[in-house]
């Protein structure tokens, strides 16, 4: 886990800063961030189904577009923070054996979960349309919210899993601010 170059050193410094570790060491805090992240993703889904682009060109829906952009930014910021909190932002070579094992488990769980989710979506969306009369079509307003939710869950599921399951981080006994 030795840094190979200046970029590695910068990444490690950023992720391992005592202030950041103090902030994210608590499992309760990490879990509340996961809940907030999922809530934001779910809140963004209905906004994507409303034909906002058409509304804006017709002079309506500015508030909805503002809300959607706010959610995009909040989701991006929170996703980045969760990645740093769980060290998903670091390359594999900078992790030790415990961290690599945890990341591998997170990827395995996320892969299985996404497989289940995609199967449910496939069966729910494609099966009824394929085996129904020709007048039954898949509702197009559902496509964007569904893709948004699947994409955001896929992107952050490993970090969310780690944030949720990792216990409170042990304190650094050389950092006077962290001594119990």
């Amino acid at each position: 886990m030795e840094p190979q170059n200046a970029s590695d050193q910068a990444r490690l410094r950023q992720t391992e800063s005592p202030r950041l570790r103090r902030m994210w060491g608590s499992r309760a805090r990490r879990r509340s961030s996961v809940i907030l992240y999922l809530a934001l993703v779910l809140a963004g889904a209905p906004l994507l189904s409303g034909g906002i682009v058409v509304d804006v060109t017709e002079g309506r829906g500015i508030a909805a577009l503002g809300a959607l952009l706010t959610i995009f930014v909040a989701v991006a910021v929170l996703s980045t923070r969760l990645s740093r909190a769980t060290r998903m932002s670091l390359p594999h070579r900078l992790l030790d054996e415990r961290q690599r094992a945890e990341r591998d488990t997170a990827h395995r769980v996320a892969h299985t979960t996404m497989g289940v989710l995609l199967t449910v979506v496939f069966v729910g969306a494609v099966y009824p349309v394929t085996f129904s009369p020709p007048e039954v079509v898949f509702p197009s307003w559902l496509v964007a919210p569904m893709l948004w939710t699947l994409m955001m869950v896929h992107v952050s599921l490993p970090a969310c899993y780690l944030a949720w399951t990792q216990p409170d981080e042990p304190f650094d006994d050389e950092d006077p601010d962290e001594l119990p």
Binding site: M1, E2, L95, D96, E97, R98, Q99, P167, E169, P170, F171, D172, D173, E174
Partner: peptide, 23 residues
């Protein structure tokens, strides 16, 4: 210290903490 042991072993100091806590 945890950090000294971790540096000697080439692992993160938290890994030493998790080992000690039995996690």
């Amino acid at each position: 210290s945890r950090r000294q042991l971790a540096e000697a072993l080439g692992v993160h100091y938290q890994t030493v903490g998790y080992l000690e806590r039995g996690e």
